[in-house]
Amino acid sequence: MNPKPFLQLDRVIHEKGRLPIMSLLAAAPELSFTDLRDTLNMTDGNLSMHIKTLQEAGFVSVTKSFHRHRPLTTCALTPAGRRAFSDYIDLLEQIVRQAKETKQSLQKK
């Protein structure tokens, strides 16, 4: 079994707190900070920290605006983030596929 795909996994995405954020954002054009926080049951501080890391990596864009005189922060995946997330999923699928093939060949022996 080739361990290469596992080593290629993006370390920014491959983190317990950041992977769910990327998954949610991949499914919607944009989500508000409160939607993310409520869906993932994260604290404001924890979510801010992970979003900042993703923003610095160029995977997430953050827009601050006002809605009915109240501040509204929305997050969205950047094209680079979408590409990185797609590559991450491809690698995971590759790992699963390789393991199945290895298992089958072992069973044949």
Binding site: S23, L25, A26, A27, V96, A99
Partner: peptide
């Protein structure tokens, strides 16, 4: 890896 894929799928559906 399989578990992660399942988590991603569930979260994307929820998103």
């Amino acid at each position: 890896a399989s578990e992660n894929l399942q988590v991603i799928r569930t979260l994307m559906e929820r998103g």
